[in-house]
Amino acid sequence: MSDKPHRNRDGWDPFPSSERDRQDAAAMSGGTPQTRSPTYRLAFDDADFLTREETRGVRLQLELMKPELAFLDAGILSTVVLFGGARIPPPGVAAWAARNDTQKANLEASSKYYEEARRFAQICSRHSATSSGGKEFVIVTGGGPGVMEAGNRGAADVGAPSISLNITLPREQEPNRFATPELCFNFHYFAIRKMHFLLRAKAMAIFPGGFGTMDELFEALTLIQTKRMQKIPVILFGESFWKRVISFEALVEAGTIAPDDLELLTFAETAEDGWQAIRQFYAF
């Protein structure tokens, strides 16, 4: 039976729980050809039914609901989203993802961003603990290695919770060992995962990364630019990297974005720079 409270505070409930019916159905499943038939399974307890193409809409709802309920149960009110390259190693560790000597040298030089991401997460998490009991400005990452690991690790360094939103991928999909287990999730749908990144976001800290990092960055910028999302600090760590790989000024010159769209971005070099941008934005 579920240990969740009954809807009535005295424990009375006129209907049997779905969990009890699931257990009862499992107990009789081997009895007759009728009870062994897949059609006899309870719909919510039938994995074959739930993974049909026609039930995709149900699965989308479930992926939205499951983390949401966990965040409500944990009392998490707001987050700081931390993105960055999965391939960037910690300082002193060989670049496991390098395909040639140039990539090896560049990735290992980028380990400074791992350290800054870790320190930034420490600062955010200390503030979260002292100001809200760990309910506001909670670090959330994609849960993988590299900069994402650094974010979860920084929170763990100071004994704070952090969120891991993983996705099923051919590689780099396992959650890093620093994420809070009770706040570690696995997604099938990128779209729902993206929603959970932003639903409680009060800031985004974006470190150098690849397609995935840029995908998340530009989606957030688009939502803010079109006023489909409230303006929040979007902090790009490593100005030289970002201005080398993306010419924001060229977009302005081309007329494809407005000059004041550049004000949506804040550049930072250190963890302290990034945190100061958040403090100034929220005036605390």
Score class of each variant (00 low, 15 high):
His188Glu: 13
Phe241Gly: 00
Glu182Ala: 14
Leu199Gly: 07
Lys231Ile: 13
Ser240Tyr: 06
Phe218Gln: 02
Leu183His: 08
Glu253Met: 08
Gln230Arg: 15
Met204Asn: 04
Glu249Met: 13
Leu251Ser: 12
Glu182Thr: 13
Gly209Asn: 02
Leu236Asn: 00
Tyr189Trp: 11
Phe241Lys: 00
His188Val: 14
His188Asn: 11
Phe237Ala: 03
Cys184Ser: 14
Phe178Lys: 01
Phe207Met: 03
Arg244Val: 08
Phe237Gly: 05
Gly209Ile: 05
Gln230Lys: 15
Ile192Lys: 13
His188Trp: 12
Ser240Phe: 05
Ser240Gln: 07
Gln225Asp: 09
Ile235Leu: 07
Ala179Cys: 04
Thr226Asn: 02
Met195Cys: 13
Phe241Pro: 00
Leu221Ser: 02
Phe237Gln: 03
Phe190Asp: 08
Ala179Thr: 08
Ile235Tyr: 01
Gly210Ile: 01
Glu174Leu: 02
Thr222Ser: 14
Ala201Pro: 02
Gly212Lys: 13
Arg200Phe: 09
Leu236Trp: 01
Pro175Ala: 10
Lys227Asp: 06
Phe248Thr: 08
Met204Cys: 09
Arg177Asp: 15
Glu239Lys: 14
Glu239Gln: 13
Phe197Gln: 05
His196Pro: 04
Arg177Pro: 13
Gly210Thr: 01
Lys194Trp: 01
Ile246Arg: 00
Val252Gly: 01
Thr226Leu: 07
Ile206Gly: 04
Arg177Met: 14
Phe190Asn: 06
Asn186Trp: 11
Ser240Ile: 05
Ala201Tyr: 06
Ile192Cys: 12
Leu217Lys: 06
Phe207Glu: 02
Phe218Ser: 08
Met204Glu: 10
Glu219Leu: 09
Gly209Pro: 01
Glu216Ala: 04
Lys227Ala: 03
Ile232Leu: 10
Glu253Asp: 12
Lys202Arg: 14
Glu239Ala: 11
Arg193Trp: 07
Asp215Tyr: 06
Lys194Gln: 02
Ala254Trp: 05
Ile246Cys: 00
Phe211Tyr: 11
Phe187Met: 09
Arg193Val: 11
Phe197Val: 09
Met214Glu: 10
Lys227Phe: 03
Phe187Lys: 06
Trp242Leu: 04
Asn186His: 10
Phe185Pro: 03
Ser247Arg: 04
Arg177Gln: 15
Gly209Arg: 00
His196Trp: 09
Lys231Arg: 15
Leu198Ile: 12
Leu198Ala: 15
Phe178Asp: 09
Leu251Pro: 04
Leu198Trp: 13
Phe211Ser: 13
Phe207Gly: 02
Glu239Gly: 07
Met195Trp: 14
Phe211Arg: 12
Glu182Asn: 11
Leu221Asp: 05
Met214Arg: 11
Ala203Phe: 09
Gln225Asn: 08
Leu236Pro: 02
Asp215Gln: 10
Ser247Trp: 03
Ile235Glu: 08
Phe178Tyr: 11
Ile224Asn: 04
Gly212Leu: 10
Phe248Tyr: 05
Phe241Ile: 00
Ile235Asp: 05
Glu249Gly: 12
Lys231Tyr: 14
Gly238Ile: 02
Glu249Ile: 13
Arg193His: 04
Ala220Met: 14
Ile232Tyr: 01
Ala250Cys: 07
Gln230Ala: 15
Leu223Ser: 09
Gln230Val: 14
Phe185Arg: 00
Pro233Val: 00
Val252Gln: 06
His188Phe: 14
Ile192Val: 15
Leu236His: 00
Ile232Val: 09
Val234His: 00
Pro233Asn: 03
Ala220Asp: 07
Leu223Met: 08
Lys231Ser: 15
